[in-house]
Computed example of a mutant assay.
Amino acid sequence: MGAKWTNADIPDQTGRTVVITGATSGIGLITARELAGAGARVVLAVRDPAKGRAVAATLPGRTEVRELDVSRLRSVREFAEAWRGRIDVLVNNAGIMQVPEARTEDGFELQTATNFLGPFALTTLLLPHVTDRVVTVSSQLHRISRIDLTDLAWASRKYDDLRTYADSKLAVLLFTLELQRRLAEAGSPVRSLAAHPGIATTNLVAHRGRSATPFSFLLNDPEHGALPTLFAATQDVPGGSYVGPDGVGGVKGHPKIGTPSRRARDPRLARELWDVASRLTTADTATRAPQSGK
């Protein structure tokens, strides 16, 4: 493998099943395209099945579309309950960023539900089917989070769209690393990994306006933004790895394994978050994944 890893380095994925959430645009779409092109059976788990089918028709290889809205626990449970067979790779890609304050049907703040609580419930419910790895997309903005586990759903604090996003992405990393600890302690071969795209020019922040446009040359394009996810999904890297761009500040470049913040690596905080998320999702998720000793 060369010093600068690209999608040309993806190994043959024939015979593997990959589930990708939020696969109709941006990094999720590119991840689906590349893995399907490498031979994988790719399941596009998407909120809008009609849009998913239109996208799938443009992709190479074997694809399938299933409805999933990760912001709705009912949808998450229905997807998990309907699943049959193995999943080699689960990619928790779906996410939103700095949206206006809104609540889900479960009463959660929308970014928290979409970026963390939904993926948490989905992963732990699907874990008995996963044979190889779970890859969850985080963000370097997790470094500014001061997460409050007593108000994870932002029910009592004044809403701050950036802080909420950062909290959700720190929660993702805490969960990813705690899941890896539990899997390792149980002797499972399944790996839990995180990836981040740096700052990529996708439609994730399109609603924020044109302010970043003059500086787009400093950012990753979507093709490069998808590389860390593809690297984490296909390369033989240790569980618990945090893959992102190799450029200054992890903003752009080619994939490399980096180090998340000290707070993201706090096992006590991660265990506490797991317990809070299990209670909030009310899905008995804590019994679906191997338990760590305390």
Rank of each mutant, 00 (worst) to 15 (best):
P11K: 03
T14Y: 00
R16K: 15
T17C: 11
I20Q: 02
I20D: 02
I20S: 06
A23P: 13
S25G: 03
I27W: 09
I27C: 10
I30A: 04
R33P: 02
R33C: 00
A38Y: 10
A40C: 06
A40E: 04
R41P: 05
R47Y: 08
P49G: 04
A54V: 01
V55I: 13
V55M: 02
T58L: 08
G61I: 02
R62E: 14
T63H: 08
L68W: 11
D69F: 13
R72H: 07
S75E: 08
R77F: 06
E78C: 02
E81A: 15
L90M: 00
V91Y: 03
N92E: 03
N92D: 06
A94E: 03
V99W: 04
E105A: 14
G107I: 04
L110W: 07
T112H: 12
A113W: 09
P119N: 05
P119W: 05
L125I: 05
P128M: 11
H129S: 15
R133Q: 12
T136K: 10
S139C: 11
Q140V: 12
R143G: 00
D148F: 04
D148M: 07
T150K: 15
W154T: 12
A155H: 13
R157P: 13
K158R: 15
D160W: 10
L162V: 14
A166Y: 11
V172Q: 13
L177Y: 15
L177T: 10
E178M: 09
Q180T: 04
G187S: 06
R191C: 01
A194G: 07
A194F: 03
A194T: 04
P197Q: 01
I199Q: 09
T201F: 03
T202Q: 05
N203K: 15
L204V: 09
A206F: 03
A206W: 03
H207W: 07
R208S: 08
R210E: 13
T213R: 15
N220V: 01
E223P: 12
A232E: 00
A233D: 09
Q235T: 10
P238I: 01
P238R: 07
P238H: 03
G239P: 10
S241G: 00
Y242C: 09
V243I: 12
G244I: 01
G249D: 03
G250P: 06
V251F: 12
P255D: 02
K256R: 12
I257H: 07
G258D: 06
T259I: 04
A264M: 02
R265P: 00
R265H: 00
R268N: 02
L269W: 06
L269A: 11
R271S: 12
R271C: 01
V276N: 08
L280E: 05
T285H: 05
T287H: 12
Q291Y: 02
Q291H: 13
G293L: 11
